[in-house]
């Protein structure tokens, strides 16, 4: 039970953590100043959410560790984030689609988590939901703006949708650990979120003139620490300093 809670807290914390890293890579590279601020602000929100989850995970752990250890010192296989957030900032359309898919997911998941039997889960969800609502609004607007914009923006957005769709099956997998939590009313049935997720995504797709890809999505092993080939490079970057200077302070 405690291990299951830990696993899910890690799942949520790692997902926000990796996504925040991708968003913060955009700092000073945004298409224009205001969007640069917006993307990094959203990145900071994700760092905050990640910190809450990893703090709780550290409390649940039997080892003497803290949130920083979990963020910076684990091996690749020990991260349980969804694979979608690892996808690089190929171009701005990829940034928008990746964010939009995650925002819809987080919105549905956090809405349900506010009723969690675990009071810390419920509290984190309550706090995060306000931020997520804003993220969703921001990314949905960009979906429509790009999809319904010029022929180039439309084409680039559709390319990003076609590529990233592959990773969305990952969001709704229910391994044993999560099934146990769902049975106890601590988390919702993740597989049950899929139809609502599809509905919300399709509403925006329709407005943006996006076509839903026809192929089967990948139900990956991200719960067991399987990652895309991009993950190792990210770890190299953000783990380099903490590994070199183990006692480094902020």
């Amino acid at each position: 039970m405690k291990k299951d809670l830990y696993n899910f807290a890690i799942r949520m914390g790692d997902t926000s953590w990796i996504l925040s890293h991708r968003l913060c890579e955009l700092c000073s590279y945004g298409p224009f100043l205001e969007e640069d601020l917006a993307m990094t602000n959203i990145g900071l929100d994700h760092i905050g959410q990640s910190e809450e989850w990893l703090k709780y995970a550290a409390e649940l752990s039997d080892e003497n560790i803290d949130a920083d250890f979990l963020a910076y010192r684990r091996k690749e296989k020990e991260y349980r984030n969804v694979q979608l957030v690892e996808f690089p900032n190929e171009d701005f359309a990829y940034v928008v689609v990746r964010q939009f898919f995650m925002d819809v997911y987080n919105y549905l998941l956090y809405s349900k988590l506010t009723n969690s039997k675990d009071t810390t889960f419920a509290a984190i969800a309550q706090k995060s939901l306000k931020e997520v609502r804003y993220h969703l609004r921001h990314s949905s607007n960009w979906m429509v703006r790009l999809g319904d914009g010029t022929s180039e923006s439309h084409e680039r957005l559709q390319n990003a949708v076609n590529d990233l769709w592959f990773y969305t099956g990952d969001l709704f997998v229910m391994p044993e650990s999560e099934q146990n939590l769902a049975k106890d009313g601590i988390i919702p049935d993740l597989a049950g979120l899929e139809s609502d997720w599809n509905k919300m995504v399709m509403e925006v797709f329709n407005e943006a003139g996006m076509q839903k890809p026809e192929y089967e999505v990948l139900a990956s092993g991200s719960f067991d620490g399987q990652h895309t080939e991009y993950m190792g490079f990210m770890l190299c970057e953000f783990q380099y300093l903490p590994n070199m200077l183990q006692d480094a302070k902020w």
């Binding site: 224009f32 205001e34 969007e35 601020l37 917006a38 602000n41 609004r137 921001h138 607007n141 703006r145």
Partner: peptide, 20 residues
Amino acid sequence: AVHAYDKEMAIENARDTYTR
């Protein structure tokens, strides 16, 4: 002041720039 292409973007950019 902020730059933006439409009303929604304007209010979002204003939020991100001035009300954090």
